[in-house]
């Protein structure tokens, strides 16, 4: 599988990273180099192998249903680039 410039532009859009034409051209080569290299994984016989789910044997712990957090509005908003009263502000979204 190899990517062309359209694909690179599509991936950039999906990633929400603006990309110039020149950057896209450069990225085509880089991504193809990396992808061609990782494709050697296809050689590995993985018959009957389950994909890894937990790196180290461990069980998911579940939390009790109690309110232990929240009510920290000032902390939550402290670093906001555009704080509007108690809200985060973003460019107007038309739904």
């Amino acid at each position: 599988m190899s990517v062309d410039k359209d694909t690179v532009n599509k991936i950039a859009r999906l990633s929400r990273i603006a990309i110039s034409d020149a950057e896209a051209d450069k990225m085509v080569g880089e991504l193809n180099g990396i992808l061609a290299w990782v494709e050697q994984l296809g050689e590995v016989d993985v018959t009957g192998v389950e994909p890894m789910t937990a790196v180290i044997a461990n069980k998911l712990r579940l939390r009790d249903d109690v309110v232990t957090d929240g009510d920290v509005r000032d902390k939550v908003l402290a670093n906001a680039p555009a704080k509007e009263g108690s809200f985060f502000g973003v460019p107007k979204v038309i739904e």
Partner: peptide, 17 residues
Amino acid sequence: FYDAYYTQAQKVRALIA
């Protein structure tokens, strides 16, 4: 592409472990 890349990689990862 998910299965060809990611799922395959996680299987290979299991083999490495």
